[in-house]
Amino acid sequence: MNLFVVRHAYARPAERGEADEARPLTTKGKQRFSREVRAMRALDLTFDRIYHSPWLRAVQTADLLAKRLEGDSVVTSNLAKAPSSALLEELEGERVAVVGHQPWLGELAAWLVNGDTLLAENWKLGKGGVFWLSGEPAPSEMELRALMPPRWLRRLGAR
């Protein structure tokens, strides 16, 4: 499996009384991530499944990413918490994107590549950034193919 671990795009801070889960992307966040999606098009990158967290900023990011989707989009509560076996059991497909939040995405990558979520501090991911992993979606069974920082993707998408 080629697994693309995608952090949600830039969201505005929570307003008074607003739940963190309800924070939407900013207009600039949407524009910037759209450029990243254009970069994915330039790279001929498509997904046969996109899994995403139910939090609004992840839903909106997945919605923008869906332009590169050739199969189903799946929302899962397993991406709104620390990575678990239940999440790995859900993943199906050959080119799969997961859209979620830090620090859990870093923990997921550390778990899949290093076999230990405690190494997550080495897996920093900016908003809109992407880790490309490949292998079996099981602890220590994947390798890092590429780190795609958001700024690099945006530059590529702006061309």
């Binding site: 739940a19 889960e21 309800a22 967290s53 139910p54 939090w55 609004l56 839903v59 799946v74 929302v75 899962t76 509560s77 397993n78 991406l79 709104a80 239940a86 859900e90």
Partner: peptide, 13 residues
């Protein structure tokens, strides 16, 4: 988890 996620996502739209 899909239904759980869907319910929460809809409540946040």
């Amino acid at each position: 988890p899909r239904t759980g996620g869907l319910t929460q996502a809809l409540s946040l739209i």
